[in-house]
């Protein structure tokens, strides 16, 4: 009986932690982002920079989720990198990701100096969000504006 209770408890614990895992938000710096992209040479990476306080970002996030889901078979990887303050990870970013049931990989940018990291993403970036970086092998395309699903799909297919 006791063993059975334990098993149930264990199952519940695992179930809850797996659910939590699927919605976790990891910290990521630019080196880690570059490493992540380098590892998946055969994939296309669509890296969107957003924040929970940015209305146009929130509006376009579902387009990125849709792209990731509908083009899973072409090895597209959608990385949603939040530029929220690090202090907002638990109070804003994680609750947002859970509430929206986001499926893509979500990160919080772990960099402290925008002077350095903005240029490392793309020298043309002024720092406004939303902004999106497309990477396919050696090709990089950076867009500093809001995208409709059609625009996103067009840019993705152009790569």
């Amino acid at each position: 009986m006791k063993v059975k209770t334990f098993k149930i408890m264990l199952f519940l614990f695992l179930a809850i932690s797996i659910k939590a895992y699927s919605q976790q938000v990891k910290l990521l710096n630019i080196d880690q982002l570059n490493e992540r992209v380098k590892q998946g040479q055969d994939s296309t990476y669509v890296v969107n920079f957003w924040a929970t306080w940015c209305a146009p970002c929130i509006k376009e996030l579902p387009h990125f989720e849709k792209l990731g889901l509908e083009h899973q078979s072409d090895k597209v990887v959608v990385l949603l990198v939040s530029v929220d303050f690090k202090s907002k990870l638990n109070s804003a970013v994680i609750p947002f990701v859970k509430r929206k049931k986001m499926q893509s990989e979500v990160f919080l940018l772990n960099e402290s100096s925008p002077q350095d990291y903005i240029d490392r993403i793309d020298p043309s970036w002024s720092g406004s969000i939303p902004a999106t970086l497309f990477i396919k092998k050696e090709k990089r395309k950076f867009i500093e504006s809001e995208l409709t699903y059609e625009q996103l799909l067009t840019e993705y297919k152009k790569l």
Binding site: A51, C54, P56, P114, Q115, I118, I129, P130, E144, S145
Partner: peptide, 10 residues
């Protein structure tokens, strides 16, 4: 010249 995150011009 410096760079910073901010809201896009609407």
């Amino acid at each position: 010249e410096t760079k910073e995150i901010g809201c896009t011009v609407k």
